[in-house]
Computed example of a mutant assay.
Amino acid sequence: MRTILNIIWLVFGGIWLAALYFLAGILACIFIITIPFGIASFRMARYVFWPYGKAVVAKPGAGVASGLANVVWFVLCGWWLAIGHVLTAIAQSLTIIGILDAIVNLKMIPVTCFPFGKRIVDRSSLRPDQRPLHSL
């Protein structure tokens, strides 16, 4: 079932969102100091490309540096990537088959705005003591 949902997601907007994240990653990697932002963007592009069956969990040991990186990320990239999610969700919600994808799009916005201090893992690899922040 996850494969079918991922294919529907890909066709109805996932490819465009992944392209936005990939573009943000390339732009961030132009300057050496922003390479961590590029890596985060590429990680999010992979998640947005094929999201079902993934979960977002808190990264142990994430501290003040992750918080500062999240603030810089939000100012430089996060807000316009979130706008991309909202616009794609609006377009997806115009069809009955796209309503589920629109909801998933809106659920991704918190991770889009603040990706540092989080890991994206397969749902099947979650430990019993791990509680996902976001799961599809």
Rank of each mutant, 00 (worst) to 15 (best):
T3N: 11
I7N: 06
I7Q: 12
I8M: 14
I8T: 14
I8L: 11
W9S: 03
W9F: 12
W9G: 00
L10S: 11
L10K: 12
V11H: 08
V11T: 05
F12C: 13
F12I: 14
F12K: 12
F12M: 10
G13K: 07
G13C: 05
G14K: 06
G14P: 04
I15Q: 01
I15P: 01
W16Q: 11
W16P: 00
A19I: 09
A19Q: 12
L20H: 08
Y21S: 07
Y21N: 12
A24T: 03
A24E: 06
I26Q: 14
I30S: 11
F31K: 10
F31N: 15
I32S: 10
I32V: 10
I32M: 03
I32H: 06
I33V: 15
I33W: 07
P36Q: 07
F37W: 11
I39A: 05
I39L: 06
I39N: 01
S41T: 02
F42E: 07
R46E: 15
V48F: 03
V48Q: 01
F49G: 04
W50Q: 06
W50I: 05
W50D: 11
P51N: 15
Y52G: 09
K54W: 00
K54Y: 00
K54T: 04
K54C: 07
V56N: 14
V57L: 08
V57G: 05
V57F: 04
A58L: 11
K59D: 07
P60L: 13
G61N: 05
G61K: 04
A62W: 00
G63H: 08
A65M: 15
A65D: 12
A65L: 13
S66Y: 03
L68Q: 07
L68C: 14
A69L: 09
V72C: 08
W73D: 01
W73T: 02
F74M: 14
C77A: 14
C77S: 15
W79T: 13
W80T: 09
W80G: 02
I83W: 04
G84M: 15
H85V: 03
H85M: 02
V86K: 08
T88V: 12
A89N: 02
A89Q: 01
A89I: 11
A89K: 00
I90E: 13
A91R: 07
A91D: 09
Q92G: 06
S93A: 12
L94Y: 03
I96R: 10
I97H: 03
G98L: 13
G98C: 09
I99V: 04
I99L: 09
D101T: 15
A102H: 02
A102V: 12
V104I: 12
N105K: 02
L106T: 13
K107P: 01
M108H: 01
I109W: 00
T112Q: 02
T112K: 00
F114L: 09
P115L: 04
P115H: 07
G117L: 01
K118A: 01
R119E: 07
I120Q: 00
V121Q: 00
V121Y: 06
D122N: 14
D122C: 05
D122G: 13
R123S: 10
R123D: 03
